[in-house]
């Protein structure tokens, strides 16, 4: 888990639903299968809903971590195009 290679990072702090998912989904669309996306966000609900929606699309949620009082980091691996 420690040596996951991150291929792309997006910072969507300040965005609320559904734009958190819209931005994350568009980022994943532009990636290749097997690549990993790091998402930095500060909207608590999205820390739950974005991983759920990504799983529904067939992508792998590698990590959901609260890194400080306001921010979360998600790692999503693209498993399906």
């Amino acid at each position: 888990m420690e040596d996951v290679r991150i291929n792309k990072k997006i910072n969507i702090k300040g965005l609320v639903c559904p734009y958190t998912f819209v931005k994350s989904k568009l980022a994943v669309e532009d990636m290749e299968i097997g690549e990993v996306l790091e998402i930095l966000l500060d909207y608590e609900e999205a820390a739950r809903s974005v991983p759920k929606s990504m799983e529904e699309l067939g992508q792998k949620v590698l990590k959901v971590e609260k890194i400080n009082d306001t921010d979360w980091v998600l790692l999503i691996r693209k498993d399906r195009s």
């Binding site: 559904p18 734009y19 998912f21 819209v22 931005k23 989904k25 568009l26 669309e29 532009d30 929606s53 529904e56 699309l57």
Partner: peptide, 21 residues
């Protein structure tokens, strides 16, 4: 997409059958 387009078409983009593409 422009920021306006992201908002305008967000309910399309979210759909698995549509998306950004």
């Amino acid at each position: 997409f422009t920021e306006d387009q992201l908002q305008r078409y967000s309910r399309h983009i979210i759909l698995p059958e549509v998306g950004g593409k």
